[in-house]
């Protein structure tokens, strides 16, 4: 698979020592995520008659399409060993800018590029701070989070509704994929982002550098890889994904800009990436895993909703516990590696 080739390029010394067993171990977390998703769906099917229908599963995709895009961006950042706490606030800011521009007479084709640029520019600033001033990713993206959330309130303290015909069409339009099962265009955009993310990470120079930075920044530099460009680039990717996610979020769920949107969404994205089997200290992981991670979280939350009487606190508790399980699993796998390396 191209994925394994990538890492061999990036970290020759580690994998040449590697045995077949460890080769297989690389895919263990992401396989576990896949199994977990099937188990979650099976539990739903066993408990509720109506759970195992195409539309219920499609709805998981529809309501989480923005989170899928966010998680893809977050995967890039986490693969380099960084973290981006600003994405939730950037989603809110992008939605605010979109709704403000549309309310003041802009059309969707002119407003959307501006929105997409917002996140990318913020991401660029974060990346520059991290790379050139050696500020910890956590703090730099925290500053961006404050800034973005604060700018939301500068734009407006109240919710601004979006009534643009393009947005309305995007939210109402349904595409039939199976009989009795329809999805929104947002789902296709989200899946396209996953596909693009996969291709970029596994076939381009940028992608290889991202994995190499996570494996060891100084060795990546010594190998002559363009570390500064990639290290800043991942935050631009994450910012862009956050803006794109905000588009899908406004298409799907809310159709408004509100400074209170998407509070804590960065945690969901990080949790999805962690559950997707990406090593949170960087270097190992796949965007496909993040997609599966989002779907696991989405399925659990729809299970809790199906029950109706269950306290919604359970969604958060299971999320936390699943993150823990995956971290511990990763920890055990990497411990084995470290002793051999």
């Amino acid at each position: 698979m191209s994925a394994s080739g990538t890492v061999i390029d990036a970290q020759p010394s580690r994998l040449r020592l590697g045995s077949e067993r460890r080769h297989w171990a690389r895919y263990l977390p992401v396989t576990a995520t896949g199994v977990l998703l099937l188990v979650a769906i099976a539990i739903g099917a066993a408990l509720y008659d109506r759970f195992l229908t195409g539309q219920v599963l499609a709805n998981v995709l529809i309501t989480n399409s923005h989170l899928i895009v966010l998680a893809v961006g977050m995967t890039f950042v986490i693969l380099t060993g960084g973290i981006d706490l600003s994405v939730g606030a950037v989603v809110a800011l992008s939605a605010m800018i979109a709704s403000k521009l549309l309310a003041s007479g802009w059309t969707a084709p002119t407003a959307i590029p501006v929105v997409l640029l917002t996140g990318s520019v913020l991401g660029l600033l974060v990346g520059l701070m991290i790379h050139y001033f050696k500020i910890q990713p956590f703090i730099a993206s925290l500053a961006a989070m404050f800034l973005a959330r604060g700018l939301c309130y500068v734009i407006s303290i109240e919710s601004i509704p979006i009534r643009d015909p393009f947005y309305v069409t995007m939210s109402r339009y349904r595409i039939k994929i199976f009989p009795d099962t329809t999805v929104t265009p947002a789902v296709f955009i989200a899946l396209a982002v996953v596909a693009i993310g996969f291709v970029v990470l596994h076939t381009t120079r940028f992608g290889r550098t991202v994995y190499a930075i996570g494996g060891g920044e100084s060795s990546a530099s010594l190998m002559g890889l363009p570390v500064p460009r990639a290290k800043i680039g991942v935050y631009v990717v994450s910012g862009f994904c956050a803006s794109l996610a905000s588009l899908l979020y406004t298409f799907n769920a809310v159709q408004s800009g509100n400074p209170l949107h998407a509070i804590g969404m960065e945690l969901d994205a990080i949790a999805a990436v962690a559950i997707g089997g990406t090593l949170l200290s960087g270097g190992y992981g796949f965007v496909i895993g993040s997609l599966l991670g989002v779907l696991v979280l989405g399925t659990i939350s729809s299970l809790v909703k199906f029950n109706g009487t269950l306290n919604s606190g359970w969604t958060r508790i299971t999320t936390g516990l699943l993150v823990l399980v995956f971290i511990v699993m990763q920890r055990l796998l990497t411990l084995g590696r470290r002793h051999e390396g």
Binding site: L267, A271, S312, G313, W314, R316, G320, L321, V323, I327
Partner: peptide, 14 residues
């Protein structure tokens, strides 16, 4: 601590 940050609010809700 992220684990408890997520799960802790869930526990408070419970």
């Amino acid at each position: 601590t992220l684990v408890l940050m997520t799960a802790g609010r869930g526990l408070a809700q419970l």
